[in-house]
Write a protein that binds this DNA or RNA. Structure first.
Lengths: 195, 195
DNA sequence: CTTCTAATTAGATTACAATCTAATTAGATA
DNA sequence: TATCTAATTAGATTGTAATCTAATTAGAAG
């Protein structure tokens, strides 16, 4: 799947009329005039859109007597939909936080935690980051937390919630806005932990 | 995820320049001038594209001194990429059947299909089974099909519908009774493909 | 408070895309 | 062959979007 076709796919599909056509075809093949009627558009306009959809093989046509029926090609839809993340970041599945825990990370976590409690805050930057990362894994991306909620959450790992809460901010794992706390996007974390 | 945002996503991402920006940001955060330099575009043009990417939250920005670093938000990319098939055909995975496509199956399918069309019918039994299995995934379990419907359906993958229709029968993916075609129960398939 | 740097906004240009009406084509059927 | 139907092509109009230069803003740093 090369770049140009993938861009063409997204451009083609980034149009309300064409999305409506695809939705209609998903229910079964239809001919041009039927589509024109349902969508209140002229036959040439439908022809125009179908031509674009056919260009990328999202739609195929089959004639029966005088009428041409247009069919949705579902597998092309799936193929293209899955290709963009693959192209941009080299994979198609979001990895979960714990998937990124390599053996080394696991060791460090085992060393610094006992029965789930953080024994001491690591002095080494990298180890500290891994430990913070581990604790933050239980917070929900996109959720907003009050300061009290954060404090309560942190005390499940360590009594000194103030220090650790501060570390979450300075390490840029979280940010605070008007006393509301929230996780930063995942990709930012990676950059931090790798560094 | 509502329609308008999804269309906006595809429109936004259906542009070569923005794809290049996203690819660059996937390697790590960059500031505007860096992007302008790499892409040989003016800073206002970069600003324009980044504004569109920020509108749909694909990109976030964070200031450090005088420089603003732009970050890719991977999870948004995944979310949107998976939403289109869900919207159009009511699910995001190619059929329950295709869920069983392991990596190996995926590779074979990618090899034998190009833009949804079957390039050649595999000679190896196992590969042929996987390819047939893939094509049959768009048929509905329990539904009865006329021969013409089956022919029409198959031509979306390959012009030689007669051969493939016969393969469906001999492989026991489908059966025919009084010129009516119907899928065999799933559990029969598994046994066939694994064997 | 002035100056520097990076980013954005304003405004213009150019290219492309959605839609229409009118004309044309491709097959089917009589 | 003549005619009918559905689809496409031609050509015009209108709207949107990519890109540039020039002017402006937002912070940082002296």
């Amino acid at each position: 799947m090369q770049l140009n076709k993938l861009i063409a796919f997204h451009k083609t599909v980034g149009d309300a009329t064409r999305i409506r056509i695809l939705s209609l075809l998903a229910a079964g093949p239809k001919n041009g005039q039927a589509l024109a009627g349902i969508l209140s558009l002229s036959p040439p306009t439908i022809s125009h859109h179908l031509a674009k959809l056919k260009e990328i093989n999202l739609v195929t046509d089959r004639r029966n007597k005088n009428t041409i029926y247009f069919h949705l090609n579902e597998s092309v839809l799936h193929q293209y939909s899955q290709s963009l993340p693959k192209l941009i970041i080299g994979k198609d599945n979001p990895m979960t936080m714990d998937n990124s825990l390599q053996l080394e990370h696991r060791k460090i976590v085992d060393n610094f935690f006992s029965d789930g409690m953080l024994k001491t805050i690591p002095a080494q930057r990298k180890k500290k980051m891994i430990v913070l990362y581990h604790m933050a894994a239980g917070l929900k991306m996109g959720r907003k937390y009050t300061e009290k909620e954060i404090n309560d959450y942190i005390t499940q790992f360590h009594p000194d919630y103030a220090t650790i809460r501060r570390e979450f901010i300075v390490s840029r794992i979280m940010h605070r806005e008007n006393a509301i706390y929230e996780l930063n996007p995942r990709e930012l974390w990676d950059e931090i932990v790798e560094s």
